[in-house]
């Protein structure tokens, strides 16, 4: 017990240091080349050679790095919550259609909500978040509803995918009736972009994301009981419906706010919990939750650095980078599932 504890402590410390390094590294790279010395000068509050560099670092790179960290943490933890709730290692916000639900909410606000365009003001912006939250929670509620009588997990995943398709078709329909400008704004949002959170919006995003993460951490005891299945958990005194509602709330907050701000970022929710379990070699949420959260931060910060590598040639959409890390992990896990302990019930 103590050996595994020290292993997990070491892992958490290492990941925290890695997060710090990557967070700083994110400030040094970007589509505009800024000399390292100048970045230091800006960060330490000294004179900077060009005022535009100071602006880029403070108004763009800092919020973007923090957003990458928060989005990574949020999506990874949301994925873990879903995998435990549905007792299915292949569940995730994208697969179950939850971020499609958030997208629908955003689409309703952006496409059907009149002239509002994302980022055109705080109220429009809040409307987007609320729309995403309602959409994500609605899809999650539908899936939870089905999960009460569809016991087969594979069938439940397929129901999730079908709900996702239905949601997508509604989005297409909204696109069809929307104006060209609205469609353009929505499409840009949909490509996934970690740079769309401004310094002014950052506090709102941080607070909601941290709320979702805190709820997740408060649920680690019932989450461990849920590994045994709902009937065992119930017998251990877990209030199943309350736990499910809180999970719904946490997953909704984490997925919806991230999706509202950054667009649907794929693969983090599905793959990071697996990376965390493989590193930790345990499904115990007491350690798995922090490790998953930190891994999510590391992975998305890394993806963000990769996405700005082309330099002057622009930024690679984040959704073109995340599958490069996510998909191989999932394939690895599926191919090796007989050897991986947490897969074998």
């Amino acid at each position: 017990m103590s050996r595994s504890l020290s292993h997990s402590t070491l892992l958490i410390v290492t990941l925290t240091i890695l997060v710090a390094i990557l967070l700083v590294a994110n400030l040094f790279v970007g589509s505009v080349a800024i000399p390292v010395q100048e970045v230091f000068n800006v960060l330490t509050g000294q004179e900077c050679a060009r005022e535009s560099w100071r602006y880029i670092i403070l108004e763009s790179r800092i919020p973007q790095a923090v957003t990458a960290l928060l989005a990574g943490c949020s999506l990874a933890v949301a994925g873990l919550l879903l995998q435990t709730t549905f007792n299915n290692p292949l569940a995730g916000p994208s697969i179950l259609g939850i971020d499609t639900g958030a997208s629908l909410g955003v689409a309703v606000v952006m496409l059907a909500g009149g002239a509002m365009v994302v980022g055109s003001g705080v109220s429009a912006f809040l409307a987007t978040i609320v729309g995403a939250f309602v959409g994500a929670s609605a899809v999650m509620a539908v899936i939870l509803f089905f999960s009460t009588f569809v016991r087969n997990n594979l069938m439940l995943l397929i129901i999730g995918m079908m709900v996702g398709y239905l949601t997508s078709s509604l989005i297409s329909l909204l696109n069809f009736f929307a104006s060209a400008d609205q469609v353009h704004a929505y499409t840009m949002w949909g490509m996934g972009n970690l740079s769309s959170v401004s310094l002014q919006q950052l506090p709102v995003y941080s607070v909601t994301a941290v709320c979702g993460l805190v709820i997740a951490f408060l649920l680690s005891k019932p989450l461990n009981a849920m590994l045994l299945g709902t009937r065992y958990a119930e017998n251990l005194g877990v209030n199943i419906s309350m736990t499910r509602n809180l999970l719904l709330l946490a997953t909704g907050l984490l997925t919806a706010t991230t999706t509202a701000f950054c667009g649907p970022v794929t693969f983090i929710g599905l793959s990071v919990p697996h990376i965390a379990r493989l590193l930790l070699n345990s499904s115990n949420h007491n350690t798995l939750l922090p490790v998953t959260m930190l891994c999510g931060g590391v992975v998305l910060l890394l993806c963000n650095i990769i996405s700005v590598l082309p330099g002057d040639n622009g930024i690679i959409p984040i959704n073109a980078v995340t599958p490069l890390i996510g998909a191989p992990v999932i394939i690895y896990v599926i191919v090796n599932q007989k050897k991986i302990s947490y897969f074998n019930g």
Binding site: S220, N224, A225, L228, G229, S282, S283, F343
Partner: peptide
């Protein structure tokens, strides 16, 4: 006889889950 997802827990951790009714908020 329910399906469980405890392959990644140690024997001791599973037995310790039985203490949940007796432990506090964080278990």
């Amino acid at each position: 006889t329910d399906k469980t997802a405890i392959g990644g827990l140690t024997v001791r951790e599973v037995v310790a889950l039985g203490r949940q009714p007796h432990t506090g908020f964080f278990g």
